[in-house]
Amino acid sequence: MEAPIITATLVRRIEWSDTDAAGHQHNSAIMRFVEACEAQLFRDLELPDYFGQAPRVRHEVNFRAKLWFGQEVTTEVSLRRVGETSMTFSFRVWGEAFGDGPRRPAADGEFVTVFVPWGGEQSAPWPAHIREAVLDHAH
């Protein structure tokens, strides 16, 4: 796999509201963690206008292990590709060592966003300032 263009990392703890009745994470919690990390990436780039104009058009999640209430979780989102109208991201979520258990991958996957201008209904080319801000941070 090629090197990411830019990566963000976010650490948080599994809260009670992130769990189901069995005490482990609800599947939707993974996506909230990924979206929070994606938001951090674009806040770090000072691109608030990304939000509300970048809907998902594809999303894939591979669930690997359970996360438990109180466990610390690290999420990493990496921008892998910038196209004319889309961006492709990969993500990894892992649970830090908890109780007697080791650090374990909890989920990974990929998602694609497209640029849809305010009031629009279909994708359009990314604005130059967004493309430039992202590509200027390439590793």
Rank of each mutant, 00 (worst) to 15 (best):
L10S: 04
A22W: 10
Q53M: 10
G52I: 02
E38S: 05
L45K: 03
E35D: 15
V112Y: 00
I130E: 01
G70S: 00
H59K: 07
E2N: 13
I6P: 00
V11E: 13
T9G: 03
V57G: 08
A124M: 13
A97N: 06
I6Y: 08
T9P: 02
S17E: 11
V116H: 10
A21M: 04
I130P: 00
E76F: 05
P125L: 11
V114I: 08
S28N: 02
A39S: 11
R32V: 12
D18G: 00
Q40C: 06
Q40L: 14
E46H: 13
Q25D: 08
F111Q: 01
D49G: 09
S78V: 07
D20K: 03
G101E: 07
L135Q: 07
W68K: 10
S78N: 09
R103W: 00
W126Q: 11
S86R: 12
P55T: 07
R131I: 08
R43Y: 12
G99L: 12
A65V: 02
P127D: 01
D20T: 04
L47C: 11
Q122V: 08
H129W: 10
V11K: 14
F63M: 13
Q122F: 07
F51L: 05
A138L: 05
P117L: 08
E110I: 07
H26T: 12
P55L: 08
A22C: 09
S17Q: 12
E121T: 13
E132D: 15
L10K: 14
M87F: 02
A21Q: 06
F115P: 04
E35N: 12
R43G: 05
E60D: 15
G101V: 02
D18F: 03
R64W: 09
Q25M: 13
E2F: 05
S90G: 09
Y50W: 14
L47F: 12
N27L: 11
W118N: 08
P102Q: 13
H59I: 13
E96H: 15
W16K: 07
A8N: 02
P48N: 02
E121R: 14
F89Q: 02
Q71D: 09
